[in-house]
């Protein structure tokens, strides 16, 4: 009786699975094993080949290999067969270019898929100073990378979430506080207090306990939400004429010190925001002022 050899649980990624039946392996077990290997090949994008000594070799993606390995191991346990995994140094032939959106985006440098929005803040006494950075996936860059093959929904939105997760996992810019856009499902992966996750409006159905920012609220939202009950440490709002139509009472109830007004194009927009009690801004006007601060030797 030959023992079944199993790979270490946390070894290198599998690249091929070898199945060597012994002389005493009953024909049914043979057939089941063969069916499992063929299943992996046919339905999970693998390849099965056989050698002269009766060894079968399955090459497939690591998830498919793992699935086949587990099923085969359970079926063959104690029986006359050997199951060996082979970590192949070179990638399995032939190398198929990644055609899915995940692979296409992974091949691009991360910085080319992100948008940086420096935040300008006004402290007490109205002194302007840098107030951190918002970092978010760039929808236009993602659309350009994915091309026509993956245009529209749900692929663009999915690509956005893939890029956001990658940004979370990669080294962060030095600016603090860092407002980083994330899908709510990635929240458990967030570590560190200098990072403020920026979440989409659906998070408001069940807000997290930890500090968070919300972005993506439109005029349609603000028309139906009760501002006094809007949670969040920061609220990112795009500057737009519809905002100016909201009464001052709305802004007082919202607690405007939480707001970051985005896309402010000129001095008039900035002044309007300040008049409502808003103290943080992004956009061309903010960039201009931050530039001046930098040139004058500010922090």
């Amino acid at each position: 009786m030959h023992p079944v050899t199993l790979p270490a649980q946390h070894g290198p990624a599998l690249a091929a699975l070898l199945f060597r039946p012994g002389p005493h392996l009953p024909p049914e077990a043979h057939r089941v094993a063969h069916a499992l290997l063929q299943d992996a090949a046919r339905n999970r994008g693998g390849r099965v080949s056989s050698a002269a000594d009766g060894t079968w070799r399955l090459e497939a993606t690591p998830p498919a290999l793992e699935h086949a390995r587990r099923a085969l191991a359970a079926v063959l346990n104690g029986r006359d067969a050997v199951l060996v995994t082979e970590a192949v140094a070179a990638p399995p032939v032939p190398e198929r270019p990644g055609t899915g959106p995940e692979a296409i985006l992974a091949a691009k440098p991360l910085h080319s898929l992100l948008e940086r929005r420096p935040i300008l803040g006004f402290g007490s006494g109205g002194i302007p100073r840098p107030a951190g950075l918002r970092l978010l996936p760039s929808a236009p860059a993602i659309a350009a990378a994915l091309g026509t093959a993956w245009e529209g929904s749900p692929w663009q939105a999915h690509g956005w979430e893939v890029v956001a997760r990658r940004a979370l996992a990669s080294p962060h810019p030095a600016e603090t506080p860092l407002h980083l856009d994330l899908p709510p499902e990635a929240l458990p992966l967030v570590k560190g207090a200098a990072l403020l996750p920026v979440l989409p409006p659906r998070i408001l159905a069940r807000p997290p306990i930890r500090p968070f920012a919300v972005a993506g609220l439109t005029a349609a939202h603000l028309a139906i939400l009760d501002p006094a009950h809007l949670p969040g440490t920061a609220i990112h709002l795009n500057h737009d004429p519809a905002l100016e139509a909201l009464p001052p009472a709305f802004w007082r109830a919202l607690k405007p010190a939480r707001v970051v007004l985005e896309g402010v194009a000129d001095a008039a927009g900035l002044e309007w925001g300040l008049s409502r009690g808003i103290a943080r801004f992004t956009g061309p006007q903010a960039d201009r002022l931050l530039d001046v601060l930098r040139r004058n030797g500010g922090t």
Binding site: A71, N77, G78
Partner: peptide, 22 residues
């Protein structure tokens, strides 16, 4: 069946106590 025969047999073996528990 027959696509998921492996999974069914693996589960059968487990419930018969013949395979190491997952």
């Amino acid at each position: 069946l027959p696509e998921e025969s492996g999974a069914l047999l693996a589960g059968l073996e487990e419930s018969l106590g013949l395979a190491p528990a997952m």
